[in-house]
């Protein structure tokens, strides 16, 4: 999961700006509620950026402001180094987007939908439209269903068509809101593969999702939002580096193990068959020898970095109810 963070920056498409997306004190108020509050987002060019947050945290509102669909109450947005919405006409052709699920014309076929979307964009060569549409359909694995009406598509197929719309032209930035929503496991894998492929070509991918395992697998960077505010952002590797690893011992000698760990200042927690503790700076192999020397019988010994899900819950709280 962290190997992606170490991948060298792509050589193609020299970045014109260090940040593909940058917002400064971005705020959107609906009535009295600041749905997005003083957001300073920095998405490095070439990154696969996971944008996380519970339902209602302001992710989609942020994405709509990035695309110029709604006007900020305060603050600024820069896409590919140019201000939005002022420079939308120059910048957006290089930005593909999937916002709040796919939306197409139900009475048109998949192919006709793509042709329509290709036709309304900035002027493009009509004679090569067919080839562009074919390529986009191929890329999302929808060629076989191209002549079916959108009405008859399943949720996963609709999601694929939405992605095909985003991929109709070469993009430098993709903004994908929940791209794997409603997809079967194969579809999810393919999308993950597609995102990696695009990223390898130098496309910056900004990805919002609630599937944390998903994010953990493809992203190099993450940001977490809650109640309209940015809680944290940075590279996934650094975030995991900074977190405290946790020791877990599987043992029948619960009491003895806990006492032994306590002698060196750790704070062990005893479970039904395990003892665990944040290990701070202690070396795992030293701990192991100490436990064995003390006569603790060890069935299992593991030092774990917290998963993204653990970090996410730690940041946004355990509550299940929608915050607002």
């Amino acid at each position: 999961m962290t190997d992606l963070a170490l991948r060298p920056a792509p050589a193609s498409a020299p970045p014109t700006s260090a940040f593909a997306i940058r917002t400064n004190a971005l705020t959107k108020r609906f009535g009295d509620v600041a749905v997005v509050d003083q957001l300073d987002l920095e998405v490095p060019t070439g990154s696969v950026f996971g944008f996380l947050g519970p339902n209602g945290s302001g992710k989609t509102t942020t994405i709509r402001m990035l695309l110029g669909l709604i006007a900020p109450s305060a603050g600024t947005v820069e896409l590919l180094g140019r201000p939005i919405p002022q420079a939308a006409r120059e910048v957006l052709p290089a930005v593909g987007a999937l916002v709040e699920g796919p939306a197409c014309y139900p009475w048109l076929t998949g192919r006709q939908n793509l042709e329509r979307m290709d036709a309304v964009g900035p002027e493009r060569d009509r004679s090569t439209r067919h080839a562009r549409v074919d390529e986009a359909l191929e890329r999302v694995g929808l060629s076989a269903a191209a002549s079916k009406k959108y009405r008859a598509y399943s949720l996963g197929m609709r999601q694929r068509l939405g992605l095909a719309v985003a991929l109709l032209r070469p993009r430098r930035l993709l903004i994908l809101d929940e791209p794997t929503n409603g997809m079967d496991p194969q579809g999810t894998r393919e999308i993950r593969h597609l995102i990696r492929e695009l990223a390898a070509d130098g496309t910056t991918v900004f990805l919002s999702s609630h599937l944390l395992a998903e994010i953990e697998q493809v992203c190099t960077h993450v940001a977490v939002m809650n109640l309209g505010r940015l809680l944290t952002q940075g590279s996934l590797a650094a975030m995991q580096q900074n977190s405290t690893p946790r020791l877990r011992i599987d043992t029948p000698d619960l009491r003895l193990a806990a006492d032994t760990l306590a002698t060196i200042g750790l704070e062990p927690i005893t479970g039904p068959s395990t003892v665990s503790a944040d290990v701070m700076r202690a070396e795992p192999h030293e701990l192991c020898r100490m436990l064995v020397d003390a006569g603790v019988r060890v069935n299992g010994f593991a030092v774990e970095r917290p998963s993204l899900e653990d970090m996410f819950v730690a940041l946004t709280g355990e509550g299940f109810d929608v915050a607002r």
Partner: peptide
């Protein structure tokens, strides 16, 4: 239909 957001994001002025 929701297609308005995609038309505008193409971008279509």
């Amino acid at each position: 239909q929701g297609t308005l957001r995609y038309l505008l994001a193409r971008p279509t002025g």
